[in-house]
Structure formats: C-alpha cells, structure tokens
Design a protein around this nucleic acid. Structure first.
Length: 410
RNA sequence: GGAGGGGUACCAAAGUGGCCAACUGGGGCGGACUGUAAAUCCGUUGCGAAAGCUUCGUAGGUUCGAAUCCUACCCCCUCCA
C-alpha cells in the first residue's frame, strides 16, 4: 500500500518536471500539480489545448517549440486538443496589424486543416490528438450569449493585454471586435473542458481568459502554460511568417539546412534548447565547448542544422542537404541539382534572360543586379547590363549566392 | 453631435507650386570580408534600353507646371459632448 503511494508521488513529480522543463510560466503551478495528481490517481488523461489560426497553415519552428511540449505531454499519456479557429477565421480581421485578414471559405478552412495535420504530425502523436473546429460551438451562440460572455470582462481588463495597451496609448486603432478574439479563444476552453492550454508568452492574456471564463461557467479553471517565443532568422524579431524570418517545417531540406546556417550565432543555444530534441546534458556540453572555443561555432551550427533538417525531412534528406551545403557554400562549387530553364538557341539579352527565368522580377532590377556584380555566367561575373548571351547547352547562370539555373534548349 | 490634427514608396518619416521618382533612417537585395553568422564597409531599392511613363488616401478642378492650392468623398487620431 505504502509502496503504491510512493510510486504515485514519484510519477507526479516526474510528470510535473517534464511539463515544467523549458516553460516560461505555469499559471498557477500548484493547480497543475493537483491536476496531475488527479490524473495519475484516476488514470484519466488531461486535456491539453492548442489553438491554431486557420488562415496561416504554414507551421514554422517557432510553433514547434509549443508542439514539442505538447508531444511531451502526450508521451506522459495526456490528450491534445487542437482547435482550428475556423470561426474566427471566417469573421476575418479587418484590423490585423500586419495585413487585412481575409475571410476564409469553408473550403479553404478544410484545405488548411488538412495541411495542418500533415505538418503537425511531424511532431505530435496522431493517436493522442483530437482535432476540433471552434465554429462547432461558437456559431450556434445567440447574441444574448455573446453579451453575457462579454459582460464578464471590463475594458480596463482588456487593456491589460500588452498589445492592446500599447496600441491604445500610441493611438493605434483597436476595433471593438478584437476584444472578442480572446473571449472566443477562452470560450473554446469552456466548450472543451480544457485542463491545460499552451501558447507562446505572447498568448498569456488569452490563456488566462480561458481560466476566467471557465470559472464563470462553473468549471475547473485551466492551467496556462507558456513557452518562449523564438527569434527568427534576423535574430531580433520573433519568428513569423509575415516577417519572412522563419524556417518552415514543410520547406525543402536544403532550405531548412541553409536557413539554420544563416542564424546568428547568439541564437544557437536557444535553438538547441528548444528544438534539437537532444538531452539537456548534451546541450550543456555543446554550450560549454562553444564557450571554451573547443567547438567551432560553425560546426555546432551544422549539427543544429542537421538535426532540424533530419527531424522534418528525414535523415537521408539531411545528409544530402549537408553535403550540398558544403559543396556550394564552403567549397563554392556548383550545387548538385540546378533547376533547368529551357530556351531556344538564339542570342538573348542577359536582362531578358534573367527576367524570363524569374531570377529577377523586372528588367530594371535585372540591370541593377548585373551592375551590382551579382550575376555570373559559367562562374564569370558579367558587369555589362547590355550583355547579349549566346547560349550553349548546360550554361549556368547565377544570381547572388544561391540562385542558379542551367540552360537547356527546347 | 462639436472642435482640432493627420493619410507620402515595404515600414518609419521629410517635403507645403517648378531644383521631387520624391531628403533621411530601418528593412530588402547585390558586392567586399567571413563560417551563406554577427559586426563593418560599398552599391542599390517604381517601370522602361532610352526618350519618357505611371506614383504621394480617392475622384474631380485651378495652373504653363501640383505630393504641395481648391472642391467633394473615404479613412485614422485627439479633445469635448
């Protein structure tokens, strides 16, 4: 009897430790412990929610930080609830700070959901994942329900949220309906009886909203678990699609490898921590070796790039990407595979060729590239914007460091 | 409902009748240096081979000539109610 009790205590401790690792905040921690306890004692898995924006089905490694944690929870026996915010998406967001969010049709939502599944299961366990669409419970709500929902919050409370506060004080518009997004997300947790909700630290407010609303509806409040936001390729701003500083899990092995290599050194350890999947001790070793100069930062980064590539595109693709990288960027030889571009065997201006091969967006841009020394033919820099190309088969045209085409005759 | 301020390129921000395809900074792109890192330096950043053409919230108007002046409209912000 006593042995059993010890065992349970141990298991609780183990689970809480795993859940805690790498997390920024767990609000509140003692409730997490009691939820885990209940789950261990009853054998009832916890329901762990993650909301997804239906309009942007490209998962990047910033999301993976959170997915990774979800996976760990699954491995502890818990259940993941993926909520696709199709209702939110269908309303659209006319004031989205980056760009007007388009309203999505049902068709698009479906396609995007498929795409999510394909990507998300590179990390998550399909067997322990439920997929929900929040229109299921949000669409049938009456206006009176909505008002009731809204009445639980005050404007002052809403303005506690960082970006609202910032925009408010800076005089940047906030539409009333934006206040509903946190409410909707919180209501998802009510509908699904969520035990733990995950998100980046920028989601803290929304995650807490779930707690507030659950209490309001007489449910046990969820735990908010936040994970660090990872900086993108520029090393400064958070990784996001709209900033174009991301590494997507669906990108080609070459891209993933190359983009990882272009990360600022300062970010390496963080990436190792949150994304490599290596055991903590090993990461500490790498960190140490980097500090003492024992390990060349380039080699550490190559290791990281390899691990990430292998994770999303498989070991074989990672091998290829790595040798390709060495060949093209370290030895400056031609890449293994160069996209071909077929032309007829007549002289063309280099400018026209660059544009038709999509190596440059416009003639003017093409000319600038040439004058700026960014264009090579068969490895030889061409500086004359009037240059006329007399093509031969297998001629290689290069723009910048990474864009190549090989000519073939049609 | 009233009063005032404002909308300029990817972003921020100058420009208030010709010298403006539009200062400057950021970002992007290209080059040099490297480890496709960072930092630094250089070039470039509407289209067009060029003449030139289309751009400064939208639509009209005044003028030899407008981002700049006028009219209407749309949008944003602040204060008051």
């Amino acid at each position: 009897m006593k042995v059993d009790a010890d065992h349970i205590e141990q298991e609780i401790k183990r689970q809480v430790e795993v859940i805690q690792r790498g997390a920024v905040e767990i609000i509140p921690k003692d409730e997490l412990i009691s939820k885990v306890r209940k789950s261990v004692e009853t054998g009832q898995p916890l329901r762990v929610k993650l909301g997804l924006d239906p309009s942007a089905p490209d998962i990047h490694v910033g999301h993976v930080v959170v997915l990774e944690k979800l996976r760990q929870l699954q491995d502890l026996g818990h259940i993941v609830q993926l909520v696709i915010g199709d209702f939110t998406g269908r309303i659209g967001d006319p004031t989205g700070k980056s760009e007007t969010r388009k309203q999505l049709t049902e068709e698009q939502v479906k396609t995007n959901a498929k795409s999510y599944e394909q990507q998300v299961f590179k990390v998550l366990d399909r067997e322990r994942t439920e997929i929900h669409f929040n229109s299921t419970w949000l669409a049938p709500l009456h206006f009176s329900d909505v008002v009731r929902l809204a009445s639980t919050l005050t404007v002052a409370r809403m303005l506690e949220r960082d970006d609202f506060k910032k925009r408010f004080t800076q005089g940047i518009p906030i539409s009333i309906h934006e206040f509903f997004y946190p409410l909707m997300q919180g209501y998802d947790s009510v509908a699904l009886r969520t035990d733990i909700e995950l998100g980046g630290t920028d989601q803290t407010f929304n995650l807490l909203m779930g707690r507030t609303l659950q209490k309001e509806y007489g449910l046990e409040p969820q735990i908010a678990l936040t994970m660090p936001i990872i900086e993108g390729l520029d090393g400064v701003q958070k990784m996001s699609k709209s900033l174009g500083n991301y590494i997507g899990v669906n990108e080609s092995a070459k891209e993933i490898y190359g983009k990882t290599m272009s990360l600022p050194d300062a970010l390496m350890v963080k990436y190792f921590d949150l994304l490599s999947g290596l055991p903590t001790e090993e990461i500490l070793q790498i960190e140490q070796a980097l500090r003492t100069g024992e390990l060349h930062p380039r080699d550490a980064k190559m290791r990281l790039a390899y691990l990430l590539t292998a994770r999303f595109q498989g070991a074989q693709a990672a091998d290829e990407a790595q040798s390709e990288f060495v060949r093209v960027f370290q030895k400056h030889t031609l890449p293994d595979e160069i996209p071909t571009f077929s032309i007829t065997n007549v002289d063309v201006s280099l400018v026209a060729l660059l544009v038709s091969a999509k190596l440059a967006p416009s003639n003017s841009e093409a000319r600038r590239l040439i004058q700026g020394g960014g264009v090579r033919i068969d490895g030889v820099q061409v500086l004359d914007p009037q240059f006329i190309v007399t093509p031969h088969a297998d001629m290689v045209v290069q723009v910048g460091k990474r864009k190549f085409i090989r000519l073939i005759f049609s």
